[in-house]
């Protein structure tokens, strides 16, 4: 197992689109192991995308099951050739990224999504995700198209009134 180097912006590779994963073999499994090792070595990241370590393939890992404040989740997710097939709602949330150290900013994401992807055996799976996990998935999928959360920043001064509120 190897902890890989994480690319940081302005590395141009972060702005490139990634290619479809076509071969599901031991090399892929070894890469996934290293990618997860790299995620866990960082400062509490809930996701990582292959292009963040310089591998331009459509593959991400998301795991929001270990947060201090628990959220709905599907545990450890390896999403290969993922695509979002449905979106619903909009919500503002704050995001940071391993590839953009020392900055967090507000981003609008879909509140809930349906995600379709292949697992490590190449089998297609589809399910619904919402809230924080859906946000993490959308953040990671953006990396596959050369998008960073910086491309989606909204001004703090154009505030949206958020929906989940605790009324006084």
């Amino acid at each position: 197992m190897t902890v890989l180097d994480i690319l940081q912006y302005p590395d141009e590779r972060l702005k490139q689109s990634s290619k479809t994963v076509e071969i599901f073999d031991q090399t892929l499994k070894d890469f996934v192991t290293d990618l997860e090792e790299t995620r866990l070595a960082g400062p509490g990241a809930v996701g990582i995308a292959a292009p963040q370590v310089g591998c331009a393939r459509r593959l991400v890992i998301v795991d929001v099951s270990q947060l201090k404040k628990p959220v709905d989740n599907h545990g450890y997710l390896l999403l290969i050739n993922p695509e979002i097939t449905k979106w619903q709602g909009m919500e503002k949330g704050r995001e940071g990224c391993l590839s953009v150290p020392d900055y967090t900013g507000n981003v609008i994401r879909a509140e809930s999504i349906r995600i379709r992807f292949q697992n490590i055996e190449g089998e297609w799976i589809e399910f619904d995700s919402g809230g924080y996990e859906a946000r993490a998935i959308q953040h990671e999928l953006d990396h596959l198209d050369g998008m960073l959360f910086l491309d989606r920043l909204v001004s703090r001064r154009s505030d949206l009134f958020t929906r989940k509120t605790y009324k006084k």
Partner: peptide
């Protein structure tokens, strides 16, 4: 916030920053 005068609407929303 319950101590705040009537007529002032107040919404408090936790921010859980995504670190990815």
């Amino acid at each position: 916030a319950k101590k705040i005068s009537k007529g002032i609407e107040l919404n408090i929303v936790p921010i859980q920053t995504l670190r990815a």
